[in-house]
Structures are given as C-alpha cells and as structure tokens.
Design a protein around this nucleic acid. Structure first.
Lengths: 231, 231
DNA sequence: AATAAGCGTTAAAGAAAGTTAAAGCCTTAT
DNA sequence: ATAAGGCTTTAACTTTCTTTAACGCTTATT
C-alpha cells in the first residue's frame, strides 16, 4: 500500500518504546509525532491534522482511555489503536466501547502493528477522498490526475507517471512549498542525491508544459523544495 | 448500531465452535450463515450478499487463506476476519497480506470477537455498494468473469483464460494501480522477465478489445504496473 | 571575494513498455 | 499417429520513460 502523507499521533510514555516505534513507522513512510502523555497528545491532536492515533493506555497525567474518550467527544472518525500491557478482557472491551478500531497488547511485533495499521487505513483512507476523481485547475490548464492528462486551449498533453505524480504533489500544495524530501520519499521512495537531480529534470519538464500560461510558476525554494504558484 | 440486516458468512470446520458462534452472533442480531469448509463457503459467498466474512484458517478441502485469496481476486471490500489456532507471526502476517481486517487467535472471547466485528463494521457499513462478484461493468462493456465473455453493443468477444484473468484483476483494481508483480505472481505464478513480456502482450490484446470505448484506458505506471481507468 | 552547495537545462545512455509476428505447445478430431 | 486449431510464449524491433552526466548559473556561507 502506498502510504503517502499519513500523519500518526503516537502517545506513549515509555521513551524507549516510543522512540523505537516512531523510528520504525517513519521508516515505513509514515509521518509520526510522539507525545509522552495524554495531555500533551490531546493538545497536539487538537491543532494537528492527524490520520491515525496510537495510544498507550497507562500514561501519567492523562491515561489513554480518558484521552480517547475526550477525542471521541468531537471526533468519531480518526482511527484509534490502543497499545497496552493491560490484557484483561474488561480493559479490551472498554477500549472497543470507547470507539477503538484495534487493541494490541504488549509485547507485540512491529510487523503486526504495521499490518493492523494498514488494515485500518485501507478502510478509512479510501473514502476520505472520493477515490480517483481527482482533478486540478492550474491557471488555464486542467489536470486530470488519474488519466495523466494536462489540457488547455483544446490541446492535451499526456504526462508520464513521474510527471503526473510530481505535478499532483505540487497541486496538492499549491502556493505552498512542497518539500523536496517529501516528494522524493513519496515518488522516488528514496531521498538521495541522484534522485534529487532526477527530480530537477522533471521540474524543468513541468515548467515547459506550463509555460504557455505566464501566471503559472514553479518556484524553487532554495534548499527546501518547490512551490507551484497560481492565483 | 442496528445489526439485523448484516449478513455474516462464517467458515468453520469445528461443528461445535461453529454452532456456538453462529448462535451467539445471531443472538446479537446478526444473520449468520455457517459453512464447514472453504469450498462450500466460496460457493455461498458467490451467490450471497454478504457483509462480513469470518474464516477459520485450517479447514478441510480448502483452507481459509486460499479462500480469502480467491475472494480478494474480485472483491476487495467485504471485511475478512481470520479466526484460527495458528498464532505464528508469519501466519498473522500472511493473513493481513491477503487483505484481512483482523486476525484473532483461539481461544478468544465471544465478546472480543463481537467488539472487533463491530469496530470493523463501523468503518465499512456507512459506504457500501453491493456488487456482483462475477460481473464487471467497464464503460460500455460488460464482462462475465466466469464465462470469459466481454460484450458491448450486442456483440460478444470470448476471451482466453489469460486474457480473462488479467482483465479480472484489472477490474478488481479499477482506477488503482495493479502491481505488475502481483499479476505475475497470481496469473503466471512466477514473477520473471519473460512472463513480464508475456503480460505486456496481453495488455496489448486487452487494449484492442476495449478500444471502441474511448473513455476506457489501460494506463501503464512505469516500473509499477497497470491501471484500468473508467468513468 | 572565494568556496561550496544547490539548482536549471540539455543531451545521451539505460531501462521499461508497445507492438507484431512467428514459434511452441497443448487439445481435439481425423 | 498425425494434423489442425487455438492459446501462450518467445523474439525482434520500435517507442517511450527515466536516470545519469555534463556544464553553467545562482544562492548561501565565511
């Protein structure tokens, strides 16, 4: 499965486990934020734009169950997976009653955790964006993401997979900076020097395609990435 | 949640466990059908309109993994929960890789099973569209999977088995990329260079069959696979 | 200002895919 | 047993897509 821009909020008070988990999930192309108690996690959840919550149950200041209950007061959608040493049946049932999607007891394998996260995301992410009807307007151009077609003035240009993916990411971040490393991780699956050069070549190609509309610009943000500018 | 219209297909060869589970689930307002092996369960799944599958892994005639794989060939939606005595990590991973939503090892509590089923249904029931697993519509074409017949405008084209299998996989992944290696492993049983070339030949054939509808497209995703695009 | 790192662009090399035709390989009928 | 026919694979050639390399320019750092 392609794990593009999934933001995971991980609440775990065991620093060791937390760090290891975050490293593992980030390596699997997620974007993980680690908080060490329920209160911090709640504050982070409120401001952030999270797609998945992994909550330890026993934490200082505010435990995972309380945290989940607070979150579910306003948010019924974001998936919750409890991660805990408590394996009592009553606890499990409490977790599910609070609206959890899964409940994993320690010790567990990272692979299983990943598999369970992906199983849940398969269900939730698919419906988030009404699948594959993606369409962007860039100045006088219209861009059919699924068909890889960029058209304007009655003319159509068929894009290659890489061109289309890059343009899609730029469009999704219209007028904001698209981090080079994000694009590389997502499209090239590896943030390396040579892939970065390859990306530069693609930026040039996209600029050529778009140059007939002078209001459009793919701006370089030195050392950071690129920004697609349109009004 | 009101459960009385939820149809569960339960495949379990242990008569005792099967009967007890069915009774429990029916008491919880589900509508449960019990089959004692993978083959019977598959036949039942094909004709029925099921919302949830509970599959034992070890069963005579056809095991649960094989059954799940067959079902997932044409149906990516219906939730699958594996119920098994096999608790080896590799088995769990295999289950999830096959597209399972959950994996519960025996012995388990009925309450936990119920909680897990409900957690999954919460995600899936909201947006479900019942589809016929043996029949696909592709633009103006209709494709009878079992009979290998592709028809449109009153004309029918009989497909060869390889053509039909490939088209089936493309349909099951409509508007998503079908990985080349997945198709090769599944249809050719070996992901090799020469089979890949053979697959290319079949893609050309399918494109010819489908070309009379310009809204249909089999798009190549370079280095990854193919994507069947329809409106 | 000197230096290094980052970017823009073009061209060429390399890898993957599109297509067509012919060769293999089964199955079935004679 | 052999020939015919349909299906699948192999082969060869063509086209397209992606990466690498090269060179010049720009931006940050000191």
């Amino acid at each position: 499965m392609e794990m593009k821009d999934i933001n995971i909020l991980l609440a775990e008070d065991d620093k060791n486990l937390g760090t290891v988990l975050k490293a593992y999930l980030d390596a699997k192309k997620f974007n993980t934020t680690l908080k060490v108690n329920g209160k911090e996690a709640y504050d982070e959840f409120i401001k952030g734009n999270y797609d998945f919550l992994i909550l330890d149950v026993m934490m200082p200041v505010k435990d995972g169950f309380t945290l989940a209950a607070e979150i579910r007061e306003t948010d019924k959608e974001t998936p919750i997976l409890f991660l805990t040493a408590k394996s009592l049946p009553e606890d499990k049932m409490k977790g599910f009653k609070l609206g959890a999607d899964d409940y994993l007891t320690k010790p567990f394998s990272m692979e299983e955790l990943l598999a369970r996260i992906e199983a849940i995301l398969r269900r939730t992410q698919a419906h988030k964006t009404p699948v594959n009807k993606e369409f962007f307007t860039i100045g006088k151009f219209s861009f059919d993401v699924t068909r890889h077609i960029l058209s304007a003035d009655g003319e159509s240009q068929k894009l290659t997979s890489k061109e289309a993916e890059l343009l899609k990411m730029l469009c999704a971040n219209k007028n904001e900076t698209l981090d080079r490393s994000e694009a590389l991780k997502h499209i090239w699956h590896d943030d390396s020097y040579f892939n970065a050069r390859s990306m530069d070549v693609y930026v040039t190609k996209l600029r050529k395609y778009l140059k007939s509309d002078p209001t459009i610009e793919i701006l370089n943000v030195h050392g950071v990435g690129f920004k697609l500018i349109t009004e």
